[in-house]
Structure formats: structure tokens, C-alpha cells
Amino acid sequence: MTTSQYLLQQAINAISIGSLYALMAIGLAMVFGILRLINFAHGDLIMVGSYTALLLLVIGVPFWAAALAGMTASMLAGLIMERVAYRPIRGAPDVAMLLTSFAVTIFLENSAVLIFGPTSRPFQGPAILGTALEFGRLRIASVDIIAIVVTGILLVLLTLFITHTEVGIAMRAASQDLLAAQLMGINVNRVIAYAFAIGSMLAGVVGLLWSVRVGKIDPLMGFYPVLKAFVASVIGGLGSLPGAVLGGYVLGILEIMLQGLLPTSLTPFRDAFVFVTLIILLLFRPNGILGATEREKI
């Protein structure tokens, strides 16, 4: 394989993994933007969606229907999470909300362990997702292409939603100034429910792509993705939607680059290098790449 083929393969790999981080980070950013809540339980929505899909696949439901049901399950889980855990403590100090999100995580993960057992289960997507496209000696997994394309489509739809619909504009307004949004008569409960629903559905999509990519699922599968998504949104600027997307791709590219460039003896410490890069970035841009540098106007 030539160098350029190798680079192309790695680039696709990076963009594909970056797409998943970006979709996850959007969910975190939407909620953080309005509520200043870092919802660590966001990762468990991946697990909820994947297990729902798996249960249906096992009884012979076609993949597309199981996928749709998985996404719906993630969305409903997100909505219930907001209603049961976060709405009652809205307005509480940030730390209280953060701790609540840990509680939700522990609850969901342990429930999954109780119901499905702690061991991982194989997750098989349809044959088409398992194949690799071959161009000469270049091999590209079709799930990577699908992740990139699906993410692209979702990002376009999301952009249209937040710039062209009333709820979408209201969501941006609420994330800039929640009190002013209330004074304008924006129904904050509705906007927050939308943020949770959309973010959770995206987590469901990530769950399916992730499960197909890895080939197995387990009750704690959401832990790393949400951590990565958190890093991605910090890189991009916490609470900023374009920042979340950018951060997701930057993180994906960074990881794959380090994977390729580090000597073999150091690759197990790849994440450590990622975090060092994050620390250096934050030293220069404390609010992330696209984070708002608040400026008061007189």
C-alpha cells in the first residue's frame, strides 16, 4: 500500500471516529448550553439504544426497524431523564446537577447489569455494514463511510433546525440568556425537552454505529464515548454547537494521528497524549477553540 493510500485510509478512519464524537458532543452541548449541566448520563443513552436494538434483532426484527426503535428508545430515555432527574433540581447549583448526572449514570448502568448481566454480548449489524470497500489495496470499512455520511446529513438537518425553526432559534436564545428567553415568553420547558430529545436521539445513532463498529455491547459501553465527547466539547468550546462538532473532529483526527505517529511502545498511552494536548490548548484558549470570550458592552 502506498503512503497516500495509507494516509487516505487513516483520514477516513479519523473523520469517521470524529463524526461519532461530534454527534455525542452535540448532545452534551445542547443541554449544557441551556442548563449549565454536564450530563454524564448522556453516554448511557448509547447503551439504552443499543440494547433495545439488540433485543429486537435477536427476535428477528429487521435491522432498520431495530435501529429506529433503538434511536427512539434513546430519545425517550433522555426525555424521561430530564423529567424525572433534572427538572426537579433545575436552578440548583451546578455541582448538584453534576452529581445528579452521576447518580443517573450509576442507576442506568447498574440496572443494565442487573437485567442483561455484566458480560458483553455480540452485536451484529446487517452484512452490508460488515463489509469493506476495496479500491486496489485500499480497504475502507463500509460502516465508516456510513458514519461519515449519516453524520453529514444529521448536521445539515440540525443546522436547518436551529436556524430556521422557531423552536431552534428559541433554543439558541435560551442558551444565551435563559432569563431573557423566559421574559420573551419562550416556553423553557419545551425548549429543554427538545434539547434532550434531539441530543438523545443523536446518542442513539452513535450507539448503533458504535456497536456495529466494535461488534459487541456491554452495560458500561457509554463511559468512554461520553468522556471523549466531553473532551471534544471542551476543545471546541463548552456549550457551543459548532464548537462541539469541530471539537469532535479535532479529537478524532488527533487520536488517529497519535496512533500512527507514536512509536509502538507508547501507543497504549495515546489518551494521555490526547489529554496533554487538551491541557496545552486550554492554556492558550481557556474557552476552547470557538468558545465565547465574553465581552461586556457599555
Binding site: E166, I169, R172, A173, Q176, D177, A180, M184, I186, A292
Partner: peptide, 13 residues
């Protein structure tokens, strides 16, 4: 005002 929104979007809100 909503600084990140356009003038028109502010008025729509």
C-alpha cells in the same frame, strides 16, 4: 439581547 442571534431573530423571539 441575544448577542449570538441576528437582529431579525431577536425580534422574532
Amino acid at each position: 439581547i441575544f448577542g449570538g442571534l441576528t437582529v431579525l431573530e431577536n425580534l422574532r423571539m
